[in-house]
Amino acid sequence: MTNKANAQDKGNRAETKSGGKKLTLIIASAVLLLGAGGGGAAWYMMSRTQDGAQPQARQEPPVFVNLETFTVNLVSEHGDQHLQTNLTLKMESPSAADLIKLHMPEVRNRVLLLLSSKAASQIAGVDGKKKLASELLAEIKQPSGEGSPTHAVQSVLFTSFVIQ
């Protein structure tokens, strides 16, 4: 029985040694994999800031300014026609929105003059509306006076558009 017990004892030691080697190999592989992943992430982050790319700043939500309803007579083609529209301005910042609100009478005057210079056929289609929006944007961006900056408007949006 001693030979048999010695053989079993040697078998158990061999299993323990091979089990310990497997566990050591698994732990070493996991540590190596985590180290490589961390090193890769650090390299990626460092290379982005060194290339001159700034870390992305938190982007501010857009600021919208609703204008009162505009009702204008259009250039006569086939009798009297009217345009009734609502506009919303997308501004670059809250301070730009405050500035345009201070100059709202001038802005409304510019918009009214531009809208009343159009014929219904010029602005009835989608392309006409897009062109009108770009013309309105250029008109609204104009400085309010000499030496004052242009208004920081990103886009002009139609929220209603009715031709009668």
Rank of each mutant, 00 (worst) to 15 (best):
Ser95Met: 07
Met104Arg: 12
Ala41Met: 12
Glu68Asn: 12
Thr69Ser: 03
Leu33Gly: 03
Ile100Arg: 14
Thr85Phe: 08
Thr88Tyr: 13
Leu33Phe: 10
Leu87Val: 00
Leu23Tyr: 05
Lys131His: 01
Lys22Asn: 11
Arg110Thr: 10
His103Lys: 00
Trp43Met: 11
Thr88Arg: 15
Asp127Ala: 02
Gly125Trp: 03
Leu87Trp: 14
Gly39Ser: 09
Leu112His: 10
Gln54Arg: 12
Gly35Arg: 02
Gly128Val: 11
Lys130Pro: 13
Gly35Val: 00
Pro55Glu: 08
Asp98Cys: 04
Gly20Gln: 00
Pro55His: 14
Leu114His: 04
Arg58Glu: 15
Val72Gly: 05
Thr24Arg: 00
Ser47Gln: 15
Asn66Glu: 13
Asn86Thr: 05
Pro55Gly: 13
Ser93Trp: 09
Asp80His: 10
Leu99Arg: 09
Ser76Gly: 06
Gly40Ser: 03
Ser95Lys: 05
Phe70Ala: 07
Thr88Gln: 15
Gln122Trp: 02
Arg48Gln: 09
Ala30Asn: 13
Thr49Pro: 06
Val65Met: 02
Asp98Lys: 00
His82Tyr: 10
Thr49Ala: 11
Gly79Cys: 04
Glu106Cys: 12
Ala57Gly: 14
Ile26His: 00
Val111Arg: 09
Ala57Val: 09
Pro94Arg: 15
Asp98Phe: 03
Thr71Met: 06
Ser116Lys: 05
Ala30His: 09
Tyr44His: 12
Ser29Ile: 13
Thr71Ile: 10
Arg108Phe: 12
Met46Tyr: 07
Ile100Gln: 02
His103Glu: 10
Leu115Gln: 14
Ser116His: 12
Gly79Thr: 06
Leu67Asp: 13
Ser29Pro: 08
Val107Leu: 02
Ala124Gln: 14
Ala124Leu: 15
Lys21Ala: 05
Ser29Trp: 03
Lys22Val: 07
Met91Thr: 08
Leu25Ala: 01
Gly125Phe: 04
Asp51Glu: 08
Leu115Cys: 14
Lys118Gly: 02
Leu74Phe: 05
Ala124Phe: 07
Arg108Ile: 06
Ile27Asp: 01
Lys90Cys: 04
Leu89Ser: 09
Ile27Val: 02
Ala41Asn: 01
Ser121Glu: 05
Gly19Gln: 15
Lys130Asp: 15
Leu112Tyr: 14
Asn73Gln: 12
Ile123Lys: 03
Ser29Gln: 15
Ser29Arg: 07
Leu102Val: 08
Gly128Thr: 09
Gln50His: 12
Gly128Lys: 10
Val63Thr: 13
Asp98Asn: 01
Leu25Ile: 09
Ala96Phe: 04
Lys101Trp: 13
Ala30Phe: 11
Gly128Gln: 01
Ala42Met: 08
Asp127Gln: 03
Ala96Arg: 15
Val126Ile: 02
Leu89Tyr: 11
Ala97Ile: 12
Ala42Tyr: 12
Ala96Cys: 05
Glu60Gly: 13
Pro105Ile: 14
Leu25Asp: 08
His82Pro: 04
Pro55Ile: 15
Thr24Tyr: 00
Pro61His: 12
Ser121Lys: 06
Lys21Trp: 02
Gln81Thr: 05
Ser47Val: 15
Arg58Thr: 12
Leu115Arg: 08
Ala120Tyr: 01
Thr69Met: 09
Thr88Glu: 12
Phe64Thr: 15
Lys90Trp: 00
Trp43Glu: 04
Asn86Ile: 09
Gly125Arg: 02
Gly52Arg: 06
Lys90Asn: 13
Thr71Phe: 07
Ile123Asp: 02
Arg108Gln: 04
Ala30Ile: 11
Ala30Ser: 08
Ile123Asn: 03
